[in-house]
Design a protein around this nucleic acid. Structure first.
Lengths: 173, 173
DNA sequence: ACACCGTCGTTCGAATTTGAACAACAGGAG
DNA sequence: CTCCTGTTGTTCAAATTCGAACGACGGTGT
């Protein structure tokens, strides 16, 4: 008796087989998948609220600041940034514009490529990140990191690394 | 040298300490967290595309069908469904309306509570799910499940279960 | 029976996200 | 140099999402 399933309750009776017969998920696989989806949604929801309340930033905006801060010159090309964030280019354009209005990020054109645009962290941007980071990290720790044992964390880091890598490959069609 | 960090590159110099001094994430913790966020975004993106192309459904809509199908009578109260999906009530109202227009889901009022509304899978809804599930499951398997060893999967299922539970608690303020 | 607090689902406006279409340009083959 | 193909960032319309505000009810204590 499948509980919360990602497939119909019962595998369809063997009739015609267009693909090669579906391999459904067993209980453990299902638990992993449902856990992933649920935890992901729940976590996003919670982080969104915390950031908005404490710093007036959305999670996406916060992540933009983080990636820029981690970049060599505090600046990144739009496309590159979009890749790291895993968003659409148009979505990034929108958010960078918002952050620009807030004075947290600036745009600078690229010397070697006329089309290119650098998103760059302003001083207020750095300030804002320094201010917002502690609360954010504390919550991530409370809701994810500290809930797991060190062994679990090791496996999770490894496994999710593999999955991300696999997904990146798939991305580059 | 923190690579892709969820915090400023360098922990701020010890000055005043409003909270109790932030406990930043070490490399492994950061890897787990970044892996989680990245994998989550990438996976959602990919599944969204697959479902839309193959079945004309969004991931959210598909999940609604799944949860309804897994429910005792193929029907659930709106609030209950919203909880399982981890979505806002208003968001669910919208999506159920869409699915209703597609003829996949119907609304039925609750006998014991005049306010209550049941979302119910129609025959076409079941049909659609039977049709869409194989492709979806196959991709989940390809991109997540089969990328991990059985040991990793076990730990993941366990760990994410704990995290979800923790998040549910936090939700019930 | 009555007031009171919590729940139910919807509506509303505002914010965000996405893919497709674009215009401008880079880079290499010929 | 010149064409051709692939990139780059933006714009656009459409779809989705959320939270707050609502109106309508359920349940309990008195």
């Amino acid at each position: 008796m499948p509980s919360t399933s990602s497939a119909p309750s019962a595998p369809p009776a063997p009739s015609t087989r267009p693909p090669s017969e579906t391999r459904w998920l067993d209980d453990e696989e299902m638990a992993a998948w449902r856990g992933f989806v649920t935890a992901s949604n729940l976590l996003n929801r919670r982080l969104e609220r915390q950031l908005k309340e404490d710093s007036g930033l959305s999670h996406t905006q916060y992540e933009i600041l983080v990636h820029l801060s981690a970049a060599p010159a505090g600046s990144l090309r739009m496309t590159e940034l979009a890749d790291k964030l895993v968003t659409s280019k148009s979505g990034l354009t929108y958010q960078v514009t918002q952050l620009e209005r807030m004075g947290l990020v600036g745009r600078r054109s690229c010397p070697s490529d006329v089309r290119g645009v650098f998103a760059e962290l302003t001083e207020e941007g750095h300030e804002m990140l320094r201010e917002a980071a502690p609360g954010h990290v504390a919550l991530v720790r409370e809701l994810l990191i500290d809930v797991l044992s060190r062994e679990q964390l090791t496996v999770l880091a490894q496994g999710l690394g593999q999955v991300s890598a696999r997904l990146r490959l798939d991305e580059a069609l």
